[in-house]
């Protein structure tokens, strides 16, 4: 296990850091709210609105995980479990959707 972990006082970004992350999160929320009124689906491509909103959500999640949840200073095992859980979620999404997206191709298509 890594030894950089758990040195008292090292495992966080300090007072201004917390407020910086907080400011980013608040900005992200407000930005998500207003960006949802732009018609990106029409101007760019269908799903662009959702993609943008999810990208912001991912960014916010990363901030919370790295700094509020101290993953940045944590041993590799913690990094691994955080990444692995998202990876497994991706497996579940991708393989389930691979069924739905390809179901009407080929012989069954109208």
């Amino acid at each position: 296990m890594s030894d950089k972990h758990m040195e008292t006082g090292e495992g966080h970004i300090g007072y201004p850091g917390y407020f910086g992350v907080f400011a980013i999160l608040v900005f992200g929320t407000i930005f998500t709210y207003f960006s949802s009124f732009w018609d990106l689906d029409g101007t760019l491509f269908p799903g662009a609105n959702t993609l943008l909103a999810l990208a912001i959500a991912f960014f916010k999640m990363t901030c919370v995980m790295l700094f509020f949840m101290h993953v940045y200073w944590s041993p590799r095992m913690i990094w691994l479990s955080a990444v692995a859980s998202l990876f497994w979620l991706a497996i579940m999404f991708a393989y389930t959707m691979s069924d739905y997206f390809t179901r009407s191709l080929g012989v069954f298509s109208v």
Binding site: W88, Y95, S98, D99, T102, R103, G106, V107
Partner: peptide, 18 residues
């Protein structure tokens, strides 16, 4: 083991490509 669950559903109406 997490990547193969669809083999329980071959005749369920699942996409043949999946």
């Amino acid at each position: 083991g997490f990547l193969v669950w669809g083999h329980h559903m071959f005749v369920s109406g699942q996409s043949i490509y999946a």
